[in-house]
Amino acid sequence: MASNPRSTRRAADLGWYVLLTVLSLVILFPIYTTFIRAISSPVPYLNSIKSGGGLTPVELDWGVFWRVIKEPGFYRAMLLSAGTSTIIVAAQLLTSVLAAYALVFIDFRGKKLAFALLVGTLLLPIEVTLIANIETVRDLSLFNSLVGLTAPFLAWGFGIFLLRQAFLGVPSELRDAAELDGYGHLRFLFRVAVPISRPIIGSFVLISFLAAWNQYVWPRFAADEESWQTIQVALRTFGQREVDQLNFGFAAAILSALPLVALLIIFQRQLIRGLTAGAVKG
């Protein structure tokens, strides 16, 4: 019976489906429990888990999502995160495009040194430079400000590396043709180099946004007023509430991740290309 290759194949497929389903459940399980905690009324849930429950919702409280959205502490933090992330992405794109263009298309002395100094900043992440940068931001009176929250991230060593790779891939015939047409550097940059690198720029924007939106350590210490908390920092304080409001933090965590889940699903391909740049093919 099993010698029939078709049925063996089908049995193997079934095996893979079982494994894939089990693995999916493992990944989704914590998300499921968070969802249960969010939609259950907190006090009945605590009672239910003490009597051995906890895996199913108790006394549904769907209103929690609406309460989170209406809460200024939540939507202000979301808007602040959106604002800082947008500033960071736009600035990183601009500084990286210009620097990478100089590194690839313009002849100047000390190019190798410039490249090493720029990409070498990857060894000086915010975690290392934190205390010195906090001092700087304080001295410049940028504590609790949009500039203070974004300034250290306006340039990005990895972004420069990524765009340099993209520009190196611009065919030399295009450069020759542009030259014959009398294109100067600026025109070549914006009419040829940038448009032709659109796929990598798409990946750049996505991973840059992801990193900016998700960062925790810098906004945690570059601001101490509640109105200057980004959503990631605010999530911590949402957990410190009255007992009967304890599902608020879980609902807030879910809602805060939704925009990124949407981006992930829509731009899956660009995101994967960005995340794998540097990994595959060394």
Binding site: S24, P30, N214, Y216, Q232, L235, R236, F250, L260
Partner: peptide
């Protein structure tokens, strides 16, 4: 399945911490 497996990319450390708090 591929979307499910890659889904935690969208989670920040803060979100993951709240999720595992449960």
């Amino acid at each position: 399945f591929q979307t499910i497996f890659s889904s935690t990319v969208a989670s920040s450390v803060a979100v993951a911490s709240v999720v595992f708090f449960t």
